[in-house]
Amino acid sequence: MCRWLAYTGSPVVLTAVLYTPVHSLIDQSLHAKLGAETTNGDGFGIGWYDERPTPGVFRSTEPAWNDANLREVASHVASPLFFAHVRAAIGSAVQQTNCHPFRHDRRLWMHNGFIDGYARVKRELAMAVDPALYPQIAGQTDSEILFYLALTFGLETDPVGAVARAVGLVEATGRAHGVAFPFQGTIATSDGASLWAFRYSSEGRTRSMFLTRDIPTLREMYPDREILHAASDDARMVVSEPIGDLPGAWLEVPESTVAVVSRGREELRPFTPTGANTR
């Protein structure tokens, strides 16, 4: 599996989130505690929003803990909303096009998990992608196919509904091929203004996902922590596993839930896959 992090709030330099905290995402690339693997060294990626029309993306097949270019870029980029992902490959090649996050126009996407039985179902899933979008698929992963299925089903206008239809198609196709539990994963996607984070698996035993408590509450809990006074009230993070050393700072997102974070507010909603009309 992989580890990922999504931040939204006032602009911060990426280093402050990716490297500085105890058990940071970079530390998790070597020493993950809650993942299926301890080491996530099969590449990394960051994606960030700024004043430009589309988000920036930097991806590499190098291990995140050992990449001087990542540290250099992260120390110079400040962003109000960014993604970061460290990869543990399952079945697909270690190559740049397979690293997360994936990008389409203003949309970023990353995933921790898998489509079970992917070799048996990938042709049918690929055929369900909008023909106008299909040529943009550059890699081999089930995560990227899932992204383009969600785009096909309306991700840009109805993120929750589109992901529900994409996962629903994965489950229906997998079960038709005898796969008991076709989908496993946590997903983050954004349009640069809001963040949607999904936790769902067909088996009901999904990889971990956590959301920070609101900053005013954390300041009351830890009045002496300068970093909390520097953070904006609307700052939020969603992560695969907690970073930092503040007990009680993280809330585990329940199974079968989507967290919607926008302008300093978060809402947890039940998430259930639905039927998808394919071409």
Rank of each mutant, 00 (worst) to 15 (best):
Q96W: 08
A88S: 15
L70I: 03
Q96H: 06
F58M: 14
F82L: 08
A89Q: 00
A36V: 11
F82G: 10
A74R: 12
S92H: 13
L34K: 03
E72V: 11
E72Q: 15
Q96F: 04
V94H: 04
F44N: 06
W48K: 12
L70C: 02
V94L: 12
P53N: 14
T54R: 15
G91L: 04
P55F: 04
R52L: 14
A88L: 03
Q96K: 12
P55T: 10
P80D: 11
T97E: 15
E51D: 15
S75Y: 08
P53I: 14
D67Y: 08
P55A: 06
A93L: 09
P55N: 05
S75V: 05
R87L: 01
E62M: 06
Y49V: 06
H100D: 11
S60R: 04
A84I: 14
Q96I: 15
R52I: 02
P53F: 14
E72I: 10
T39R: 05
R59S: 04
T61A: 01
P80N: 11
A78V: 09
V73E: 07
A74F: 07
F82H: 07
G35N: 08
L81V: 11
A36T: 14
P63I: 12
A36H: 14
V77P: 05
Q96L: 12
P53C: 13
A74Q: 03
R59E: 02
T39I: 11
T38E: 08
A78P: 04
L70R: 12
L81C: 07
R59H: 01
T38Y: 00
D42Q: 02
N98R: 01
H76L: 11
A89Y: 06
W65N: 07
T39F: 00
D67M: 10
E51Y: 12
G47I: 09
F58E: 09
V77Y: 08
D50I: 05
L34P: 01
A78N: 04
R59L: 05
C99A: 13
V73H: 08
G41D: 09
N69V: 15
I90D: 00
H100M: 01
P80M: 07
H85F: 07
R59N: 05
S60K: 00
R59D: 03
R59P: 01
P55R: 09
G41Q: 01
G56C: 11
P53S: 14
V57T: 14
R71F: 00
N40F: 08
T97P: 03
A84K: 11
R59Y: 09
F44A: 03
G91R: 09
A88Q: 13
T39D: 06
A88M: 10
Q95F: 02
V73Y: 07
V73G: 10
D42Y: 07
F83P: 01
R71E: 06
W48A: 07
E37G: 02
F83K: 04
A68V: 13
G41N: 06
E37A: 14
Q96E: 13
A93K: 03
W65C: 15
I90P: 01
C99V: 01
T61Y: 00
D67V: 04
F83N: 00
E51C: 08
R87E: 00
Y49G: 09
V57H: 05
D50P: 04
V73P: 13
Q96T: 15
G47Q: 12
T38W: 00
T39G: 01
S60P: 02
F44C: 00
L81N: 02
I46D: 03
A84G: 07
A74K: 09
F58P: 11
A88C: 12
Q96C: 10
H76T: 15
